[in-house]
């Protein structure tokens, strides 16, 4: 124990102990035993995901509650949609193009081994609309827009700007989080559509122009296998991911603490949690949807 801490520790029983000029003063407690520390840490580790899900559920509830109450801040909604949506067009298009192209390449190569390369268009199309489109778009939006949202809200939190909103009688959930989650809900499905269209264009280009697959057959097989149910499945996933990505990003930023380092750590957690959440939810949603169909 440092001298300063010792002086403060004695404060309870010795009222005239001089104040220290060291930073914040923590009250000292009896050091817990090694075993308690280990078991506490272990249970905290096991419980952490549930605590986190609980916090997110609570925040989602608040977002819905405040989302339906006036004032409806149209300007903030549009700003957020522009940031989440328009701002992600470039990266989503680029990843879509390359992913479609490489899928075309791989699947054509695989199918050729049993003379089925004509099916490439169909299989790429189905994988894109159902799985790869929503998952990759959400991952891209998380790493670009999500991380930026966490950093922005985190900086606002540690510099008391969020508290300032509250003291000015403006609800910070309504002002900051509702527009961003709404933007995720609307824009991620739109971006997913873009991703799939550009991805199909990439696959088509590789298959038709590089590998010499007949363009008519490619499109015909695609139309034969991919129907509106696949599109709907993809869009539902995209909407769920859109809410998840923005909600997790907002939650991490909103509750950031500990200065600039704390904001960095929060951004980190936001991206990691989102990657896990997207893939886990993808499995969950797929099993629900396929179970029903």
């Amino acid at each position: 124990m440092t001298d300063a801490a010792a002086a403060v520790d004695g404060e309870e029983d010795a009222p005239t102990a001089p104040p220290t000029d060291s930073g914040n003063v923590e009250e000292e407690e009896a050091a817990p035993s090694f075993l308690t520390v280990v078991t506490d840490k272990f249970f905290a580790f096991l419980l952490a995901p549930f605590v986190e899900i609980g916090m997110l559920a609570r925040m989602l509830f608040e977002v819905i509650y405040w989302g339906f109450r006036p004032p409806y801040r149209a300007r903030l909604m549009i700003q957020s949609m522009e940031f989440v949506g328009v701002g992600s067009i470039f990266i989503v298009s680029l990843t879509g193009l390359f992913l479609g192209a490489v899928l075309g390449l791989q699947l054509a190569d695989g199918f050729r081994q049993f003379n089925a390369e004509n099916q490439t268009g169909a299989v790429v199309g189905m994988a894109m609309t159902r799985e790869i489109g929503p998952v990759f778009t959400a991952l891209m939006v998380s790493s670009r827009a999500g991380s930026a949202i966490t950093t922005e809200l985190g900086s606002m939190r540690v510099s008391s700007q969020i508290d300032a909103l509250t003291t000015m009688a403006v609800n910070p959930v309504q002002y900051l989080i509702v527009p961003r989650v709404f933007a995720g809900l609307i824009m991620v499905p739109l971006l997913t559509t873009l991703f799939v269209i550009i991805g199909m264009f990439g696959a088509y280009t590789v298959c038709v122009h590089l590998l010499g697959i007949d363009p008519g057959v490619f499109m015909d097989r695609f139309r034969w296998l991919v129907d509106w149910k696949d599109v709907l499945q993809g869009l539902i996933k995209a909407a769920v991911f859109g809410v998840t990505v923005t909600l997790v990003a907002c939650r991490q930023g909103f509750h950031a603490k500990g200065g600039a380092a704390g904001v960095g750590a929060a951004t980190n957690r936001s991206v990691v949690q989102n990657a896990i959440a997207i893939l886990a939810l993808d499995y969950l949603l797929t099993s629900i949807i396929l179970g029903q169909v």
Partner: peptide, 12 residues
């Protein structure tokens, strides 16, 4: 009631 925060807390 107005509040002037330690680091001003202006919206940047």
């Amino acid at each position: 009631m107005g509040m002037v925060f330690q680091m001003s807390a202006l919206f940047d």
